[in-house]
Design a protein around this nucleic acid. Structure first.
Lengths: 265, 265
DNA sequence: TTGCTCCTCACGTCACGTGAGGTGGC
DNA sequence: TTGCTCCTCACGTCACGTGAGGTGGC
């Protein structure tokens, strides 16, 4: 048995606003069971109430409407569950990021942590296996994880050992527009240059370097220190920023290398 | 000592995108230290780096820009801290709501919980002290808390005991537009009608009633059950929905009363 | 019949992102 | 000098909310 409700009654029953309901009709997310041809009045079926509740819950959890649509369109439980689980994992992750940011904020507000030491270094040409791709700002971490996994797999199957820590190059565009080319690389011993692996040589570059100790999402501190230091007493140069991910014993350590003109501080 | 950075360098140093920086300039949140009159080129001072970092952190935490502005504008530490603490508390609360919603979702997806029993009831005229105000959807809970506190204080100072559980009336507009008049009331004994307190009489209304057991933000289940039930076998009537907040021993219990025409089920 | 409900545009909001089309600086 | 950086509009995005101005139903 089912019955029809006006949009106002349906709004009351589902706790969705009338404006939201009309919007969901416009974008074909939740179409009224009947629409009066003459007046345009929308009429919803009581059988649509559970769907509307689902939509509301998901939207309250800030699931994008396209994902909600996927959940509703999924006829099989597996697809449905997969989308939901994916979203919950995303939320969980955002939650952890939020927690981290709060503590980071604390550091920032209570003095900004220790002053970071800037060092000058002339990087030698480095032979490496590398992958380059356009990556969006928020996708870097998973992309890097994937890239390094692949590169190491590659090396392992060729029986070669890496000769240094994993690293990445970030173009100016990546910082300017929050998306752009990123290169993940794993250094090779110079002794093993060409073995059927597409290796590439990173050029020699003079860098100002800061070592960042701690989680990846607090690395902005290191950039800030470097950027300030260089502007105040060196001359910046063109070229990508390089990060070296030092092998982690306890704390994560990352070298941030910002290209400069050869002019020791 | 400070130096100037181009917008691109400043973007790299602060991890803000160029578009974001230009936007912050437009809305006067972060104005470049210098702007070239001829070319319009923006130049930022290294001394602006810490401010930019603060802005980025707060925005990452989804603090609205107006609040960020308040933090930056606050010269005294107390105001500053107050705004930050307020935001952190808001976040904490949203976090808890999220957790609750996730578990509620689970209930919804795994069968929707127990079927709710709908009961017909002819409410008697009720004398009560009441407060009415236009309230936004998301502000109801705190508003009600405040209103009941005041009403009870009122009664206490007059030496009167409430004769029933706290309750509220919600207009149609409140459900339609997610903002509208809400009335909080505390019932009085009929024997004590006029004592200098502005009392008011809630009219006799026939209601369909469902008792919701559990947290307030899962009450949509009760509304859905009621709305469906009424549409399918009764005739809805005009007038506000009434909620009675039954005294909580363990679980919160709320009666949701939806006006209907006199027609016992 | 009156007033409440519902309707459709059209535009606003928030915090930027996305081009287009063009100029400046090393 | 070439190309990269930077500039300013103008418009798009996301998920609705906000009126304006008007009609339909009990």
């Amino acid at each position: 048995m089912s019955a029809l409700l006006t949009i106002g009654e349906f709004a009351r029953a589902t706790h969705l606003s009338i404006k939201a309901l009309r919007h969901y009709d416009d974008i074909a997310l939740l179409t009224p069971a009947e629409v009066d041809a003459a007046s345009g009045y929308r009429h919803y079926s009581t059988s649509q109430v559970p769907t509307a509740l689902l939509i509301r819950r998901f939207r309250d959890l800030e699931m994008p409407i396209d994902q909600v649509r996927q959940v509703l369109d999924a006829n099989d439980r597996d697809t449905r569950d997969a989308v939901i689980v994916a979203h919950l994992e995303q939320m969980q992750q955002r939650l952890e990021e939020t927690q981290a940011l709060v503590s980071a904020l604390h550091t920032l507000l209570t003095g900004g942590g220790a002053t970071l030491a800037v060092e000058f270094r002339h990087a030698q040409p480095t032979t490496a296996v590398a992958m380059t791709e356009r990556v969006a700002w928020d996708d870097v971490e998973p992309w890097l994880g994937d890239a390094f996994a692949r590169l190491h797999e590659h090396l392992e199957s060729a029986g070669i050992d890496a000769s240094g820590p994993d690293g990445a190059l970030y173009t100016s565009e990546f910082f300017d527009a929050h998306q752009g080319a990123v290169t993940a690389f794993v250094p090779l011993p110079d002794a093993v240059p060409l073995l059927g692996i597409e290796a590439q040589v990173l050029p020699a570059v003079p860098y100002a370097v800061v070592v960042h100790t701690g989680p990846f999402d607090e690395i902005d501190q290191a950039y800030a220190a470097l950027g300030t230091y260089i502007a105040e007493r060196m001359i910046g140069a063109e070229g990508p920023v390089r990060e070296n991910y030092l092998p982690a014993d306890e704390d994560e350590r990352t070298e941030v290398c910002w290209p400069v003109l050869r002019s020791e501080p």
